[in-house]
């Protein structure tokens, strides 16, 4: 297109609006390798020892590797549950004859639009009654379940886009519906599975409220909890440089995944209705 406008005013406005983000994130990055005296704007000296929490378990961050492993297990479990249940459920919703199919589908759509955070009190009670309160399994199941309407909906969309003829050809070729799903249809929705899996993993990786509230005393500490402990300025021994460093450590996997899978994730971010 022709450039019939001057871009500099626009860039200037954009820079101004983006300033808080740019400042926050650059200081976040800067804080990991420098120290800043309280009350100063600019860092005073280079300091790599902010990273000492990686091998020193006596910092406020505790043993970071255990927390990292916990977070990975947490996020991966959520991903696996969301993927398997959405992959099967979405297929059934998209392609198979079920009683009350319309009703169930609109139910799932309502749940998809419905803000699940409002359910946390009810979820708390359910966990109390089932004895899953203060267990990581409980939190994982809750987090995965709250993501399910979204997952099923997204997967149903991907299944809907697979031509019916592939499915028809499969049954003509003598394959059972299960074989058709497993060997012919699943490979066609791989893009959807990858995107949903990444999304679920990132969502699990960043989760804070559910483990904090539903498993408050559990030993299975995830990074978000650790980070909140380190970063709470109301605490006596708080250290913002340590917080920034742990924060960067915590966010790096997210950024890496995002850089590599940006396009796949954008589809699903756009398709998701929740911000």
């Amino acid at each position: 297109m022709t450039r019939n406008f001057s871009i500099w005013p626009v860039v200037l406005i954009l820079l101004l609006i983006s300033a808080p983000i740019v400042i926050m994130y650059s200081y976040l990055a800067l804080g990991t390798v420098t120290t800043t005296e309280p009350g100063d704007l600019l860092p005073s000296k280079l300091a790599l020892d902010n990273w000492r929490f990686l091998f020193d378990t006596s910092t406020a961050a505790g043993n970071i590797w255990i927390a990292t492993l916990n977070t990975f297990v947490f996020a991966a479990s959520i991903m696996v549950i969301v993927l398997t249940v959405s992959a099967t459920g979405g297929y059934a919703m998209s392609r198979l004859n079920l009683p009350f199919r319309r009703f169930v589908l609109s139910g799932i759509m309502v749940m998809h639009a419905f803000p699940s955070v409002t359910l946390i009190i009810g979820v708390f009670l359910v966990l109390q009654f089932t004895g899953l309160y203060d267990t990581m399994i409980g939190v994982i199941l809750v987090k995965a379940s709250l993501m399910l309407p979204f997952g099923i909906w997204i997967m149903k969309g991907f299944y809907d886009a697979v031509p019916w003829e592939i499915e028809m050809a499969g049954v003509q070729d003598g394959a059972s519906r299960f074989t058709v799903w497993r060997r012919l249809i699943l490979p066609q929705v791989r893009a959807g599975l990858v995107a949903l899996g990444l999304f679920a993993f990132l969502d699990g990786w960043g989760e804070y409220v559910l483990p904090r509230i539903l498993a408050p005393t559990n030993d299975f500490r995830v990074l978000s909890i650790v980070l909140e402990l380190v970063g709470n300025p109301d605490r006596t021994n708080y250290d913002f440089d340590l917080f920034k460093t742990v924060g960067v450590f915590y966010t790096l996997p997210v950024l890496v995944i995002f850089v590599f899978f940006q396009h796949r994730l954008m589809d699903i971010f756009g398709g998701g209705t929740k911000g």
Binding site: P163, E165, M168, A169, L184
Partner: peptide, 8 residues
């Protein structure tokens, strides 16, 4: 089938 429905 009209679109052949080969498994991609």
């Amino acid at each position: 089938f009209q679109n052949y429905a080969l498994y991609p």
